[in-house]
Amino acid sequence: MLSLNVKDETSRLRAVVLGTATSNGPTPSADEAYDPKSLEHILAGTYPKNEDMIPEMEAFASVLKKYDVKVFRPEEIKDYNQIFSRDIAFVIDDVFVKANILPDREKELDAIQYIIDQIDPKKVVRPPEEVHIEGGDVMLWNDYIFIGTYKGSDYKEYITARTNMEGVEYIRNLFPHKTVKEFDLVKSKIEARDNALHLDCCFQPVGKDKAIIYKQGFREEADYVYLVNLFGKENLFHITREEMYHMNSNVFSIAPDVVVSEKNFTRLNDWLLEQGFTVEEIPYAEISKQEGLLRCSTLPLIRD
């Protein structure tokens, strides 16, 4: 049996599900794109190919194994995107929450069923249908659960709006002893530079008391100020619109002092080194063309 335990984003990682790019399938057509960044690359003819993404994911797997992390991979579904395992489920404390994802992606849950079978069934939950919530929008920080959402009345028109207020309430009811704080995110169907697809596209804690943040990712300045007050401005690394587009806030922590980052994130990586982090740099630029990066590719199961 797997004894789940995830209370934050940075404690020492012991077990994780890492997505796979072994059979990602042909380049989708423009009307099949789930987000503006994928669309941009489909139209430009620069959408990533399997053979370019597999080495990136394997580089990530090698770093995880170097730190003795138990790495699970989804069973392969032919010609199907299974890279972003964070979208399909997430763990809070010792509870495994299955996400109500876009209906076309349901098969991705089937591909990790062999892992779910190793968890106490009483600890596996599936929200009711009206609840939309994806793992990229759920972030744990001690007694807080931060959740990205979109409060616009046009929610239904945005394929980029992945977590609704019913999702926030569902988590609030499931974990009444935690402080659940939602953040209203900026969404765009057409401009990837103005689309915070998930909360981890504009914010993520690192270490014990620091975080990476993109101010313009929040629709309400009050939400940004809330985080500044919580973390302290001196502990926040502010990224630019272009850095947000390249997913600089979507790094991944293996331990409080170890961060896996993309090798081109020069400014961020320099800052992390200055703060005393060990930075494991890997190539991940091809995968980022699908508006997801390192955190999106992982589903942590056990942290110390």
Rank of each mutant, 00 (worst) to 15 (best):
R193P: 01
I145E: 12
H132T: 08
P127W: 07
T179A: 03
E169I: 00
F175N: 00
R172Y: 00
I171M: 13
V186Y: 06
P127F: 03
G207E: 03
E157M: 15
E134K: 08
V124Y: 07
G217E: 07
G136V: 00
F203R: 02
I190A: 10
D200T: 09
N164V: 09
T160L: 12
T160D: 07
F175L: 00
D194T: 06
Y114C: 06
I115P: 11
Y155N: 09
D143P: 11
T149D: 08
Y150R: 12
E182R: 03
L109M: 10
K189V: 04
P205I: 04
D120I: 04
A161M: 02
Y155E: 06
I112N: 07
A211I: 05
P121Q: 01
Q118H: 07
Y214L: 02
T149L: 13
P205S: 10
C201H: 05
L197H: 05
I116A: 10
E169Q: 06
K215Y: 09
G167W: 00
E157G: 15
T160W: 09
G135W: 15
H132C: 04
H132I: 01
Y158E: 12
P205T: 11
T179L: 06
E182W: 09
K215I: 05
D154L: 13
T179P: 00
I190T: 12
E134F: 06
E191V: 13
K181H: 03
D120R: 08
I171G: 03
T179I: 03
H177D: 09
L174H: 00
L140C: 10
D200V: 07
D117N: 07
T149K: 14
K189S: 14
K122I: 13
I147R: 12
D154M: 11
D143A: 11
T149R: 14
K151V: 13
A192T: 06
D154S: 15
F183Q: 00
H132A: 14
D154V: 14
T163A: 04
A192S: 15
G148N: 02
T149V: 10
V180Q: 01
Y150E: 13
E134P: 04
N195P: 04
Y150C: 12
G136E: 03
R162A: 08
I213P: 11
T179M: 10
E182H: 15
D120M: 09
V168L: 11
P127E: 02
Q118S: 13
K151H: 13
K187E: 13
Q204W: 02
A196D: 02
L197I: 07
N164F: 09
E130M: 14
L185D: 07
T149Y: 15
N173F: 02
A161E: 03
N142D: 14
L199G: 07
R162I: 05
R126Y: 07
G152Q: 09
M165N: 06
G135N: 15
G135C: 07
I116F: 01
H132E: 11
K215P: 10
C201T: 11
K178E: 01
F203D: 11
K208M: 03
S153R: 13
V131R: 12
Y158W: 13
K123W: 01
P128L: 10
T160E: 13
P121R: 00
R172S: 05
Q204D: 08
L140G: 07
V125E: 12
H177Y: 01
P176Q: 03
A111L: 12
W141A: 15
Y158G: 14
I212K: 11
P176S: 00
P128F: 01
F146W: 15
K215R: 15
